[in-house]
């Protein structure tokens, strides 16, 4: 067996590696190259140095979009994880119909973001109309909370499944020991379950954080950045820079924004991983 693996590893590894290089590494390198250029098609480019990067930071809409995205990420990460964890707790108690509930909560995750965005736009606009409030596209406040509701609805089920798996892996002897020692259920939760599901928390907060930060489809479909870009998130801002502008320089600026965006996502994700990893314990 060992020998076979030594001999045939390229057969297993190379296709994936090739796909990864073609689909990810190569475009990524090109992306960085293009961010220093002015171009319409990538075969005809003019070098412009760091001009594009200077313009990125002069663009007020990009900075606004960053803060909107940051606020959104903070609120949605906390809400999604807290609610998903509570649901997971409720659904690991052996209640009747647990499986049905798990399925129901997980279902929204199977629908694409664009579709969800339009469905929720109709729903939320219907409610706002009945309440006599401005529609989603008219007030960034409603756009923001609309996005939060949509993301929670979509993501909670998925995170819940990960938490359920984590909770089911908490060793029974630990829980038993805790109860023999007279720990209340709240103490068991804080002192035993939480530290034991820390790996799940790491992965779930990583997923929600990066998903929220990179959110595009839902933003496009639900508010499309209206009113006047006040509900525009970073990914949509980059897309708009690239496609909604005419003139060769904008493509390069959009590309530079994308590189800055990449660095932001990496930075934030690494910080988050550092902090949650530290809390993980060995079983």
């Amino acid at each position: 067996m060992e020998n076979a693996i030594k001999k045939y590893w390229p057969v297993f590894l190379l296709p994936t590696l090739a796909a990864f290089i073609i689909g990810f590494i190569w475009p990524f390198i090109w992306g960085i190259y293009l961010s220093f250029h002015k171009f319409i098609t990538v075969s005809k480019t003019t070098f412009v140095g760091i001009d594009n990067y200077i313009k990125v930071f002069q663009d007020a809409t990009f900075v606004d979009a960053f803060w909107f995205t940051a606020r959104f990420t903070l609120v949605s990460t906390i809400l999604i994880n807290v609610i998903a964890f509570m649901l997971a707790l409720a659904l690991t108690r052996g209640l009747k119909g647990t499986n049905a509930f798990r399925t129901v909560f997980f279902l929204p995750n199977l629908i694409g973001g664009i579709v969800l965005g339009y469905i929720w736009q109709i729903l939320l606009n219907g409610i706002l109309t009945n309440l006599g409030l401005p529609l989603l596209a008219l007030d960034a406040k409603y756009g923001f909370w609309g996005l939060i509701i949509l993301m929670c609805w979509q993501q909670i089920g998925y995170m819940m499944i990960i938490y359920i798996a984590g909770l089911q892996n908490v060793p029974g002897d630990l829980l038993e020991a805790a109860s023999i020692d007279g720990a209340t259920s709240f103490q068991t939760l804080i002192k035993v379950k939480l530290p034991m599901v820390m790996p799940s928390i790491t992965i779930c907060s990583f997923l929600t954080l990066t998903n929220s930060f990179k959110l595009f489809d839902q933003n496009l479909a639900l508010t499309s950045g209206e009113p006047a870009k006040q509900s525009q998130m970073l990914a949509l801002n980059i897309y708009d820079t690239f496609y909604a502008r005419s003139g060769a320089q904008w493509k390069g600026i959009g590309q530079a924004k994308a590189v800055v965006f990449f660095l932001l996502v990496i930075g934030i994700a690494l910080i988050q991983l550092y902090f949650t990893r530290r809390k993980e314990v060995q079983q």
């Binding site: 401005p134 529609l135 596209a137 008219l138 007030d139 209206e226 009113p227 006047a228 870009k229 708009d240 496609y243 909604a244 502008r245 005419s246 003139g247």
Partner: peptide, 22 residues
């Protein structure tokens, strides 16, 4: 018209004006 961006800006402002929020 100078760009799509310009059209979008006018569109947003028209929408807000119609709704009474702008």
């Amino acid at each position: 018209m100078p760009s799509e961006e310009w059209k979008n800006g006018v569109g947003s402002a028209l929408t807000a004006y119609a709704a009474g929020t702008g």
